[in-house]
Amino acid sequence: MTANDEPTPAPPGRRSRLRSRIDAIEVPRPRLAVGALAGMCVMILGASMLPVPYVVERPGPAIDVLGEYQDEQILTIEGAETYETDGELMMTTVSVDGGPGYTVTPVEVLVGWFDPSQAVFPRELLFPEDQTQEQTDLQNTVQMSTSQQGAVAVALDELGVAYEDTVMVAGIQAGAPAEGQLEGGDVILAVDGEEAADVEGYQALVADREPGEDVTVTVLRDDEERDVTMATADVDGTARLGIVLGAGYDFPMDVRLTVGDVGGPSAGTMFSLAVYDELTPGALTGGEAVAGTGTISADGEVGSIGGIRQKMIGARDAGAEFFLAPGANCEEVAGNEPDGLQVVAVDTFDEALEATTTIAESGTADSLPTCEDR
């Protein structure tokens, strides 16, 4: 065949058979491609929903300790003269996803990496590998209850109000012998009639019993003494009641702090300021919205906390103009202060009190120390 020759057409029967073969080969291809693509999409979607070992921290609510939370007054004081106040003293919180009992997906982690208001950490950096949700909840409860007691004590120290040291039930393990028998906040007075001076002393009194042996614990609850008898549990060959004891105080007034299911110790400084505010004439904040964070020790030292960046953002978004930050967190604070929020560095309760008073008098924190000064 030359260049000008035309190809000889195939006979009609052969052409029909060839077309049928082509159709048989080509028709299934789009269906196969669509099916494969759908399968890939399902796999990708499924992978995006699988839990991953990361924790994502987001700004949580900023809660005015002088006001209400979940329709309940946060701070109530009975048995002492209190005073009307104004303004806000906000405790700040962090929402943590991905801890024990909770999961996050690759999509949530990816969003957290690119969202400057969030932080992403490997789970093992924040939680022991074998820690359960129940253990985490108990830890948070214990830290919150002991923090509240310590915060009240620091405020009363500042006011020169005397009180006595006690040992209290700070938390109860799920399924423990003490569950349903003792309550958080119970003050321990004796174990089988024997008194002890501190937490370690009462722990030793229980541990001296044989596992399974009954123990009678005398507690003070709602200003009433009561005896509670229960069998001890065997924990690695030692008698236990499944309670966590903490340092408590017998105050000359009834001070209650209620913040729902919020846990942890980081609200201590703001609790102390709120108690001081209600027990003194006038508004400590001068009507300003002051937020902050920081643990509080028995001697009034403000300690470092986690999630400081998220707490500053949450405070700003809640309308706070001023923020009290632990000096120990200044490395994380410096250069990360949200626009519109003046951040003051404090190391002690006295410094937090002075800062709040200065803000009330001047309406600014310009003269107060910042993390950039450190």
Rank of each mutant, 00 (worst) to 15 (best):
A233Y: 02
I243R: 01
V255H: 02
P252Q: 00
V262Q: 07
I243S: 01
L241E: 01
E225H: 04
G263I: 09
D254A: 11
P265M: 11
F251W: 01
R240C: 00
G263S: 11
R240W: 06
M253N: 04
D234F: 04
R256V: 13
G263H: 09
T232L: 07
F251Y: 12
A239G: 04
G242V: 07
E225G: 05
E225V: 10
G237A: 09
V255T: 11
E224P: 02
T258P: 00
V228I: 15
T232C: 10
F251N: 06
L257G: 01
D223N: 12
P252C: 01
A247G: 13
G248K: 06
G246V: 02
D250G: 14
G248L: 07
V228F: 06
D227L: 05
A231Q: 14
E224H: 10
I243P: 00
D223G: 02
D223H: 05
V235S: 11
E225W: 01
G242W: 03
D261A: 15
Y249W: 10
P265G: 05
V262C: 08
E225F: 02
E225N: 09
A267G: 15
D261I: 11
R256Q: 15
A233V: 03
A267V: 12
T258D: 15
L257M: 14
T258Y: 12
V244Y: 06
V262N: 08
P252R: 02
R256Y: 06
S266G: 13
V235E: 14
T269E: 11
P252N: 03
G260S: 15
M270L: 15
I243F: 00
D236W: 03
D223P: 00
S266R: 09
R226P: 00
R226T: 15
A247V: 12
T238N: 07
I243L: 02
S266M: 10
G242K: 10
T238Q: 14
V259C: 05
D234L: 05
R240Q: 14
M230I: 04
L245H: 07
G260A: 14
I243T: 08
G248N: 07
D234K: 05
R256W: 00
T238S: 13
M230C: 01
